[in-house]
Nucleic acid binder design. Structure first.
Lengths: 162, 162
DNA sequence: GCCAATTCCGAGTATTTTACTCAAGTATTC
DNA sequence: GAATACTTGAGTAAAATACTCGGAATTGGC
């Protein structure tokens, strides 16, 4: 599990895709313009997202990308994993050259820690983010003087989602 | 919040330090030998750890590094933050050049997500890892036929820690 | 059938980060 | 004063990041 700006770009792009998925296929040019990510870079990211079957492409004019499946099925961890390959960063990969098991101890420890973060991000889906996004939109509109008094089911505690 | 191999190296080194902190100052040469991390690289990492007041140095023969404070006071997040500077990876840093707030939405969203991971790692201290490490050590020794029957208070459920 | 939009694909590249080497200097203990 | 170990700084090779560019393939609309 690696957490870099690359994964951040991918999550942002996927979220943009999720926000506009009901308007037909979304072109990378649109995402590029909206999110300020280079088109060619998006192409590379989506090549991996496609390879991992998180999105499907529609070629030709009016084409673009669609989510493969529902937003409730795609987790943040999947997106991050798709674009950033996992690496080991240890010399001892089960080769048994650790003195007294110490190296392996910290090694496994970090792996477990990494797995925990992975699990954490696996529990958050695009749908969760979209829902939360809606809340922020509502909030923004409320800040702009429009006070609506109906957010009963859309009012989900943020702390419950994230 | 960035999660790369650099932070992993730092956590491993700090954990090694925590494991041997009761034997006086720990030299980087020892950590280097035990954990297989280059001495010069450790020097760079510990320069930052020192700057962030996570460790203190003891110069001269028999010197090395000590933890600044107790293992219960140092979280994984602190260690990771110390060695990896945070970056933004967005063009709009509050400059207001986001159309209709969309960019800022995903932007803030990711920041909150990152903050959640940060909080997650803030809740895990070196002491937690040492305790967990002891458990594994005990297990290893048990595998080696030495069965000790005293782990009453050191026996903390792993799932409770991580 | 042609054209334009769009995905696809590969090569190349500048910048940054990573992980490390080397060398000199400083403080401390024995 | 010599050995130990931190401290500092310069430099560097490899990898990852974040693109650019050029072109090819696909397809909807005219």
């Amino acid at each position: 599990m690696r957490l870099t700006t690359k994964g951040r770009y991918a999550v942002t792009a996927m979220l943009d895709l999720a926000l506009h998925c009901d308007e037909g296929p979304v072109s990378l040019a649109d995402i590029s313009a909206r999110q300020g990510i280079s088109l060619s870079y998006l192409e590379q990211l989506f090549a991996r997202l496609r390879y991992f079957k998180l999105v499907k492409s529609v070629r030709g004019p009016g084409g673009g990308y669609r989510l493969m499946g529902s937003t409730t099925d795609i987790s943040i961890a999947q997106v991050v994993d798709a674009v950033s390959e996992s690496l080991d960063a240890t010399r001892c990969e089960g080769k048994g050259n650790c003195h007294e098991g110490e190296v392996c101890l910290t090694h496994h420890l970090w792996e477990d820690l990494s797995a925990q973060i992975h699990q954490f991000l696996s529990d958050i889906t695009l749908a969760d983010l979209v829902a939360r996004n809606d809340i922020q939109s509502v909030r923004k509109r409320q800040d702009l003087r429009v006070v609506s008094s109906h957010n009963d089911e859309t009012h989900i505690a943020i702390s419950e989602i994230l």
